[in-house]
């Protein structure tokens, strides 16, 4: 079973290293300062890879995706060949047109993630909920995929 991976998430034990990484990122930001406007507009150097978690219980698979500040209608969820795909776009809205941007760390643009599902699911019974910027998708397993208790009579 293999899932699509993304850049390594910080783990608590690697904290000092993570802090150095932040410093490194700032160095990089400074280095690219002259091109900042370019990269902001072209999105060349920035990729939005929302974090995805996958859970499984007897009845279903549960996928959670962190998508803060999206509009429901801008999120697309689809199921194809046993893979769940979540995509969407956060538009670059100038919310404060009269304002001056002091800091711009939030990603804008398109994202696309897919997860290979470990068992077959009933596509017509999939439900999704979007709360606190987290999308939770519940995918009920097909009857065949659910674990079954087999009664064995030992004579």
């Amino acid at each position: 079973m293999s899932y699509q991976t993304r850049s390594q998430q910080p783990v608590p034990s690697a904290w000092p290293a993570f802090e150095r990484l932040f410093g490194f990122r700032n160095e990089l930001d400074r280095l690219f300062e002259p091109f900042a406007e370019l990269t902001r507009s072209s999105q060349l150097l920035r990729v939005w890879n929302p974090a995805i978690d996958l859970y499984e219980d007897k009845e279903s698979l549960i996928v959670k995706a962190e998508l803060p500040g999206m509009k429901k209608e801008d999120i697309d969820v689809s199921l194809h060949d046993g893979a769940l795909s979540i995509s969407g776009e956060r538009k670059n809205e100038r919310k404060f047109p009269e304002g001056e941007t002091q800091r711009s760390e939030r990603f804008v643009g398109r994202f696309q993630r897919s997860v290979t599902l470990p068992s077959p699911v009933s596509a017509d019974q999939v439900t999704a909920q979007y709360k606190d910027g987290v999308l939770t998708i519940t995918l009920p397993k097909t009857e065949e995929a659910k674990p079954k208790q087999i009664e064995v009579n030992i004579g």
């Binding site: 803060p68 919310k95 404060f96 009269e98 800091r103 711009s104 760390e105 939030r106």
Partner: peptide, 20 residues
């Protein structure tokens, strides 16, 4: 991650805190 905008009357700060 945050975005900060300054207007003539003040500042707006947006922070991404999914799950909170």
């Amino acid at each position: 991650d945050v975005n900060i905008f300054e207007t003539k009357d003040g500042y707006f700060l947006e922070a991404e805190i999914p799950g909170v």
